[in-house]
């Protein structure tokens, strides 16, 4: 009996411990006005991907992250802080980006993040800076021509944890089984080793993968609209306003189209002319 009480007390105390850890959330950093702080330090800290071709990819030669989103973040920083403004980059993944934003480690997320109603409950978004659409990557000659072909028992679709594309599959092909891998390279490897029939995510990311794996092609076109937005903390209306204004300026000056062309100009399956702004 004594042992039993001891066990119960251990469980109760551990619950109390974790409650204390979460409950005493002081909201210091995330609640400060980002614009004021950025102007003081002359820096905006961006959370970007480092494992996604064309959007944000670590260059192993010099350990710098490079891609469309990194160039865009730099351009936006200069619009907001002036030509001497510094953009700092912190590498994030789909599962760490929101906690890092809420903790104030980063000021904004620019990491292939689609604006969705669920996410809007947790964070705020700028208007869209890139219009992607979800698509499928399959082996050349695969019988799967579009997402409806996957809506059957025994079909397996591969995706990545933390992306909203897996939730879309549940909508478009409810009978298919979904496997969520931890990153795109592992999902691609799982596709090659036959763990699933198709890999699904946004077309821009899939295009990057088909470039390096010529035996695999995009199929069926985009079946959803995935507008990427810059995610920021709630209660930052000034920062949101500045971001949207900076985005408009970057678009109007033609800088947006130059960056777009630099990264997507030579990618098969991407029509840069359609995406220009």
């Amino acid at each position: 009996m004594k042992k039993f009480f001891r066990l119960v007390s251990v469980i109760i105390s551990s619950l109390a411990l974790v409650l204390v850890l979460t409950a005493c959330g002081s909201k210091s950093l995330a609640d400060q006005n980002v614009v004021t702080r950025a102007k003081r330090t002359n820096t905006i800290t961006w959370g970007v991907k480092a494992d996604t071709k064309l959007f944000g990819l670590m260059d192993v030669k010099d350990s710098h992250i490079k891609g469309f989103e990194v160039d865009m973040a730099r351009a936006l920083t200069k619009q907001i802080l002036g030509p001497k403004g510094k953009a700092e980059f912190v590498q994030v993944t789909s599962s760490t980006r929101v906690p890092l934003l809420k903790n104030g480690n980063i000021d904004a997320i620019m990491a292939t993040m689609t604006i969705t109603p669920e996410r809007l409950k947790q964070v705020d978004f700028s208007r869209s800076y890139f219009d992607a659409g979800q698509s499928l990557l399959v082996k050349k000659g695969s019988p799967i021509k579009n997402v409806r072909d996957l809506n059957k028992k025994g079909a397996t679709v591969l995706g990545v944890v933390g992306s909203n594309s897996v939730q879309n599959v549940a909508k478009f092909a409810p009978k298919a089984k979904v496997l969520q891998l931890s990153d795109y390279a592992q999902a691609m490897t799982a596709l090659k080793s036959g763990q699933g029939e198709a890999l699904t995510t946004d077309n821009g990311i899939l295009a990057g993968m088909s470039v390096e794996n010529p035996g695999y092609v995009l199929t069926g076109g985009a079946f959803t609209k995935e507008p990427y937005g810059i995610a920021i903390n709630k209660n930052q209306p000034e920062f949101k306003h500045d971001l949207n204004r900076a985005l408009t300026k970057v678009e109007q000056s033609g800088q947006y189209n130059r960056i777009l062309k630099k990264w997507f100009g030579n990618v098969p399956g991407m029509n840069v002319k359609e995406m220009e702004r």
């Binding site: 974790v18 979460t22 789909s94 599962s95 929101v98 906690p99 669920e118 996410r119 409950k121 947790q122 964070v123 944890v161 933390g162 992306s163 939730q167 496997l179 969520q180 891998l181 931890s182 592992q186 799982a190 763990q195």
Partner: peptide
């Protein structure tokens, strides 16, 4: 890591779906 549908896998799925990371992992 290999989509084995275990507790941690479901944790990752739930954390990214609810965006409530700390509570999920607790």
């Amino acid at each position: 890591f290999v989509a084995g549908f275990d507790l941690m896998y479901q944790g990752n799925v739930i954390a990214s779906d609810s965006l409530n990371t700390m509570s999920t992992y607790i």
